[in-house]
Simulated assay, not measured.
Amino acid sequence: MASTSSPSSSTSASSSQVWNHDVYLSFRGEDTRYNFVDHLHAALQQRGICTYIDIESLPHGAPIAKTLLKAIQESRIVVVVFSENYADSSFCLNELEHIMECKKERDQIVMPIYYHVDPLVVRKQKGTYEEAFAKHEFQLNDKLESWRKALEEVSSLPGWVLNKDLYR
């Protein structure tokens, strides 16, 4: 299930496209669903921004649903909320890989938000990201390189850092 507002259309620099969503929110549900992402989603909707958010928890290791792939492709902007345990989820990493492919192919805007995680941890896959990749190495070795590349690409884009140390 997903929550959406009314569709919009936008013109891409390379071609004219109809976008069914202004924004697609990508995040690790366990880390941010019931706090930051809920607030972000509500704020976007209050401003009339058509936002797609997956509101169902998916089983661990589940493949990306076709409806989510389609929603990503039909969104003008994708906001990726990186959290400390984002890389633990192969689902999130597969979704990110698809997002970065769509960015290249469809001229989408991708905006990273670093929620209580340092952008360098994401870019260099250090700390909890390094630990997650070590776990994935035993199960999904064939995906590691494409996930690393997607993380490096997205973390080189301009974004926002929301650090828990700022709120003390």
Rank of each mutant, 00 (worst) to 15 (best):
V110A: 01
R33D: 12
L68G: 01
V81C: 03
F27M: 08
C92A: 03
E130L: 13
K126R: 15
G29T: 08
S16D: 08
V23P: 01
M111T: 09
R28D: 00
E145Y: 14
Q139A: 11
H21Y: 15
P59N: 03
T51F: 01
A71D: 06
S15M: 09
N20P: 07
D38R: 13
D118H: 11
S146T: 07
K70L: 08
L69I: 06
R33V: 11
E74Y: 09
V78C: 08
L25N: 02
W19N: 12
P112Y: 03
V37I: 13
V18G: 09
L68K: 08
N141K: 14
Y52N: 07
Y86R: 07
L96T: 01
Q73E: 15
E97P: 00
Q17H: 13
H136K: 10
I109Q: 15
F36I: 12
N85P: 01
S16Y: 09
A62E: 08
N35L: 03
Q108L: 10
R148W: 06
F82E: 01
A43L: 11
S57G: 09
R76A: 05
Q139S: 11
S75Q: 05
D107W: 07
V122L: 10
H39T: 12
I49V: 08
L140P: 00
G61I: 02
P112N: 08
R76C: 03
C92I: 00
V117A: 12
A87P: 03
I77G: 05
Q73M: 09
V79F: 02
I49Y: 00
S16V: 11
E137T: 12
L120K: 15
L40M: 14
N141P: 04
D31S: 11
I55P: 08
S83L: 02
V121M: 11
L25R: 05
G61K: 09
S83F: 02
E101C: 00
F133E: 09
N94G: 02
E30G: 13
D31F: 08
S15N: 11
A65I: 03
G61V: 02
K143T: 01
K143S: 07
V37P: 04
Q45W: 03
L93D: 00
V121A: 13
E145H: 15
S89H: 03
L140V: 00
D31I: 06
R76K: 14
S57T: 09
